[in-house]
Design a protein around this nucleic acid. Structure first.
Lengths: 248, 248
DNA sequence: GCAAGCATGATTTTCGAAAATCTTGGAATT
DNA sequence: AATTCCAAGATTTTCGAAAATCATGCTTGC
């Protein structure tokens, strides 16, 4: 299956080194956390792969302590699984978890979106418009200007902007958790851009933004649900089937 | 306000030393996590209180490493707040957060309860009945047999049993997060059992269990909402008002 | 008198070594 | 041949010291 393409093969690529580092006043443990989270979500490690401390030590160039602290945080976020005296490994991926995460995500974000539409002010609308513009601009780039990670960052920023006015820190935290969990599943689509989706995803984003800003809560929630359901269905199709290129 | 009674005053009490310790095959870091989580939730530390490593070292009798790992996990759960190079402190409490947590909790648990009612089998019902029995038995005890922490454990077990058949790990995790967050606010009521609630809480639990097992989803959700709303209102009343005993 | 700068002690953060535990592979036994 | 036991190496976990940073109060200069 397509997912097996990720991971070990790419492991020799450069590791993330903490972009939004204020480089000063940022502890090594925080850098380790951001780098590891980044690398796990983006598939630099295989799912279930053991994370040996000696390897991480050389990869990120720091001692045990900050690495273990970062791994403990990631364990609490369920991106990493720890077993006593047997170390850490990357959390697994499964069809069941993707389905659960998608269902829960739709529920959480629908609620947050309704609340944001009820409470959002002009600053909220402005941020959505700006994020949508930036997202579409990046999506339109191809060739040398193409950058799936920048696209992914803007995609996240757009979806967060939609919900940010909801006024509930708890809902926003759960949004972030579910976004991270499902992003891991979307990586294959992101990288292999020749996966046929039969969708105009940026048109879906535009419609969603217009419904939200137009305070059409019912429509916006419907569009959000469809948006996530379609994405999940595409991924589920890839997870069952092997790569479409050469079917045996 | 009543909340100020907690914390530093009680800090000299014995610390939690990890009950469900399989004592073997449990690392110090895990014990530190459980003990710290236990002590924070139950108010052994004041809200916002700095958690100095030297103090924790003597309190829990272990070195820096396992303590810092535990604190990092708790930071990810938002029971502890970390500031770079300035250490850790217990997360704060606020009216706004209690309201947010209560609202979100009702939403999450309503969904989980509906799903559990739709999917639950006899084992699910049996666990609810058993948990309810144990809860009521403990609630009936007074005098020397009274044990608010055992009562609290059984209360948690009962509410978890209601939802456990929902089939969503994500919903169950969010339930646990919100339960822990709101438990911190309920401690004053638990300890000062003379707080007048004007409720028969065990009757509420019984009605809830019967509605769930009877597959009356709409009624069960209504009862759950009322149950949590009443509790939150009681606490909010205490948070604004000073202690009722001697008003100045 | 008051603010800025600085020394000092307190505290956090990080490292490398030591201790504890797991894993692997081979030898001994049945 | 299969199983158990054991030793050696690999790995995780924990500790205590060193490094880095923060907080406090004092001095200095204006």
């Amino acid at each position: 299956m397509i997912f097996e393409n990720l991971g070990i093969a790419k492991q020799s690529e450069e590791s993330h080194t903490g972009q939004d580092n204020e480089s000063t006043s940022m502890t090594l443990a925080e850098k380790a956390y951001e780098s590891l989270r980044h690398d796990i979500i983006r598939g630099a490690f295989q799912a279930e792969q053991p994370l040996r401390l000696a390897d991480l030590k050389t990869r990120y160039d720091m001692g045990f302590s900050p690495l273990r602290e970062a791994l403990n945080r990631l364990q609490a976020e369920r991106l990493v699984v720890a077993e006593a005296l047997r170390g850490f490994k990357v959390a697994g991926l499964s069809v069941a978890e993707l389905q659960d995460a998608t269902r829960t995500r739709i529920m959480i974000e629908s609620q947050a979106l309704q609340m944001a539409i009820a409470r959002g002010d002009d600053a909220w609308g402005a941020k959505i418009v700006g994020a949508l513009y930036a997202l579409k601009a990046q999506a339109a780039r191809s060739g040398a200007d193409k950058d799936v990670w920048e696209l992914e960052a803007r995609h996240h920023a757009f979806h967060r902007a939609l919900l940010e006015a909801c006024g509930s820190d708890w809902l926003l935290e759960f949004f972030e958790r579910l976004y991270a969990a499902t992003e891991r599943y979307r990586i294959p689509i992101l990288i292999e851009s020749d996966v046929p989706t039969g969708r105009d995803i940026q048109a879906e984003h535009t419609a969603l933004a217009e419904a939200a800003i137009g305070r059409n809560a019912d429509l916006a929630v419907d569009l959000l649900r469809d948006h996530y359901t379609r994405t999940a269905d595409t991924i589920l199709g890839l997870m069952d089937a092997p790569k479409p290129k050469r079917r045996k």
